[in-house]
């Protein structure tokens, strides 16, 4: 699977309150949450981004709360994937459970700018900056997580195990 889109670049330690502020958590409706995606990091993001765009952030993306509303909001807004040097632990886990593709890459952040056109090969983990003709590599996904994705997420994985 190849994901291709325009990059929105954010800084380090983007927290879950910035991704989806708690004032909107009186619902878990994905469409409602999507309206406020990244609102406290960039209030214009939701109105200006297009489906298929890519979020690129510096280290520790998704720190803070365990709210699954964060990957839900990002996915429902139409973001194709998130690339960062590292992700906060609970966000990382939630993203896999939700089926939001995320890629850990130590060097992509420095080599990609806001507005660049980027293509990610989810199979090989190769990230290509089409605007600047540069290439980066994402960390391989641990085998167990690959199995979760192959099964269609955590709940499908459990159903498959028959427990």
């Amino acid at each position: 699977m190849k994901l291709r889109g325009t990059v929105w670049k954010f800084g380090a330690d983007v927290d879950t309150d910035a991704i989806i502020p708690a004032r909107y958590l009186n619902t878990s409706d994905p469409a409602e949450l999507a309206k406020h995606c990244m609102e406290d990091a960039d209030p214009e993001f939701v109105t200006r981004m297009r489906p298929g765009d890519i979020i690129l952030a510096d280290k520790n993306f998704g720190c803070g709360s365990s709210r699954e509303h964060a990957p839900i909001a990002i996915k429902a807004a139409g973001v194709a994937c998130v690339i960062a040097p590292s992700f906060a632990r609970i966000f990382y886990r939630n993203a896999f459970n939700m089926g939001l593709p995320i890629f850990e890459s130590s060097d992509a952040y420095a080599g990609i700018e806001q507005g660049d056109e980027v293509e990610v090969d989810a199979g090989t983990g190769v990230i290509r900056n089409l605007t600047r003709a540069a290439e980066f590599r994402a960390e391989p996904i641990p085998p167990f997580m690959q199995q979760l994705i192959a099964d269609g997420g955590l709940m499908a994985h459990i159903a498959k195990r028959g427990s």
Binding site: E68, N97, M98
Partner: peptide
């Protein structure tokens, strides 16, 4: 440890 809602459901 904290987890997301789907992990809780499981």
């Amino acid at each position: 440890t904290g987890v997301g809602s789907t992990d809780l459901a499981a």
